[in-house]
Design a protein around this nucleic acid. Sequence first.
DNA 1: GCCAATTGCTTGAAGCCTAAAGAAATGCAA
DNA 2: TTGCATTTCTTTAGGCTTCAAGCAATTGGC
Lengths: 164, 164
Amino acid sequence: MILDSETKAVELPEDHGDELRLWLRLLTCTTLIEGEVRGRLRERFDVTLPRFDLMAQLDKVPEGMTLSDVSKRMMVSNGNVTGLVERLVESGHLDRRTSDTDRRVQVIRLTKAGRAEFRRMAAEHQTWIADIFSDLSPKDVRELMRLLAKTKGSAQKSAQKRAR
Amino acid sequence: MILDSETKAVELPEDHGDELRLWLRLLTCTTLIEGEVRGRLRERFDVTLPRFDLMAQLDKVPEGMTLSDVSKRMMVSNGNVTGLVERLVESGHLDRRTSDTDRRVQVIRLTKAGRAEFRRMAAEHQTWIADIFSDLSPKDVRELMRLLAKTKGSAQKSAQKRAR
DNA sequence: GCCAATTGCTTGAAGCCTAAAGAAATGCAA
DNA sequence: TTGCATTTCTTTAGGCTTCAAGCAATTGGC
């Protein structure tokens, strides 16, 4: 911050190029890996990434979740979840019922077949990920985890500021 | 690697949980930031992220690029670019002409208005990114850059292995 | 020159995704 | 109780995205 001739605060255009380059690199990495995973899921299991992700959320919670829960966890819109769930119920992977205590709420769970199918996919998926990251040492992995956690915190803070 | 009683190589199920957690964190970070940027672009400039990205590619190359170039750089499909370009030409941001030397090729460039509009958006965009990453020290940024470069290399190697 | 393979782009079908508006159910306060 | 705000989900319109198939132009081998 500097002051001009009439003692008014003036912002100098700062250099934010490094952050921008970092963001682009982060995006490139993610896009690259996401594309790779998407392609393999399609090839091996004929399943889309969003469906896999949704099933992954449900696998963690056997008693099921509401659509809103899924929406928050996957960081996608409500309407999006509605459609995804529709198709997964249709294909027999998901079970859906209205809550007993609140008739607005839909609780979804993996069916037995859906769970079996997901487990089969997840096991292989994990080896793909390991292969994709195989050049990184355990120390690299730890360090990346730490820095990404810090990044996430920073981004959330920034998002919160805007939301007000 | 261990050997079984008949001296055959046997793979033990290894633990790949750390890599998986790393991937999920990477994805979360990117999704979070991407959503934030998308929202701000829409609010402030009523533009979508893909359009902004496409214009960013073109801003770097005043003489223009072919659709294939754009497709490779943005890491999206050809058909996707066709549609994006169509809408941006329609809105007057892009200029499109058939190559003189190869009539299959379409060369696209920013129009004068398109360039001005992009520069206006890009300046503000850069400050958003700086704010989003503001908790990271310069050292953090350097370290993240390094580790993501390594990650990208590793992912590319893995992708190449599969593509054969 | 001719033909086959390749390259650059478009099209079509299907699915993903968002924002915004709306319907239904709930909760809360007067 | 009534009325209003809120929550949960769905719907709609529009755009993004992929894959696969197809068309047109070019290139390279003969």
